[in-house]
Nucleic acid binder design. Structure first.
Lengths: 163, 163
DNA sequence: GTAGTTGCAAATTGTTTGCAAGCCT
DNA sequence: AGGCTTGCAAACAATTTGCAACTAC
């Protein structure tokens, strides 16, 4: 993706290289905070030493740039913030996500097969349908075996223990 | 839904009645701002006169309560805020949404037919799948005929005109 | 009367913007 | 050199929380 950046007149810098690597090294969509942590391995909040820190703002700005360029897509799982992952043009076939509501793990899956549905709906509704987003929510095999203390989702989508 | 509230030991107040009415009167998922506007017909920001204003915080709190009670569900369309609509247990059959990326209109549709997919994936992944969320994005018939000035989505998901 | 509710102000959290300094090409 | 980038501080927007006053039951 460095090449695409360059070709479009954007510059290749150390922060951008690090961020692209972080995005390439995982299959899970990453939040800005996670990206920030990935590219700042030894960053501690309020740390005066970390000269080399890549700023959070830089992460936001570059993530947005990648989305505008169509290299990355933004997804959301009701957690109160966005997550970013490479576009399918960069990674391979069309996919969606299953999210574990207990540990928040996100897994990809393929074969959503919504062709028939979208065609039917274009006829029924008159919409031109351009894309779709599908998320499945449930409990992953690990959490099924290892049930956490009873939890519920607060309004913010964060999970908290119930007393 | 007033009955359910009462049965659970919650109180029925004027703001709550108004909010439930607003939710019942539309099929589109409403944002907190929209709910607030619905229940405060003649509210102008900074208006000293509006004695009877229902506070935004009250809207947030009640929306969250309804979600916790399972009477309302929270959906999101990448707009930077949540929207709320009555749960399917309250309104009828299972449905999803088509969103127009030009005018932001949201339309319901039925018959998503993901039974087969979820069963297959429960086998493949070991997840117990509890629910799913599907959004289709495109352009509605009105906007297809009446194309707006070229727009793009900013990082925040708000739509702005391109110079 | 008492616990559930509301409004107001203030705090939080996620994200964006203005601007001067710095760095890729 | 010159414009794209970065960092820092500050601004913004959505949402939550503390607390005293209020009200449904």
């Amino acid at each position: 993706m460095l090449g695409v950046l360059k070709d479009d007149g954007y510059r290749v810098t150390a922060p951008r290289r690090a961020l692209l690597r972080a995005l390439a090294e995982t299959t899970e969509p990453l939040s800005v905070q996670e990206l920030h942590a990935q590219v700042n391995p030894d960053y501690k909040p309020g740390d005066e030493e970390s000269e080399e820190e890549i700023n959070l703002v830089t992460v936001y700005r570059f993530a947005n740039l990648l989305v505008e360029m169509g290299l990355v897509r933004r997804v959301e799982f009701g957690q109160g913030y966005y997550r970013y992952e490479r576009e399918e043009s960069q990674t391979g076939p069309h996919h969606h996500h299953i999210v574990c509501r207990q540990c928040n793990r996100v897994e990809d899956f393929h074969g959503c097969d919504l062709q028939g549905l979208t065609e039917r709906l274009e006829g029924d509704t008159g919409f031109r349908i351009e894309r779709h987003q599908l998320e499945l929510y449930g409990v992953c095999p690990q959490c099924l075996e290892n049930p956490a203390p009873d939890t519920r989702r607060t309004s913010g989508g964060r999970t908290v223990a119930v007393e």
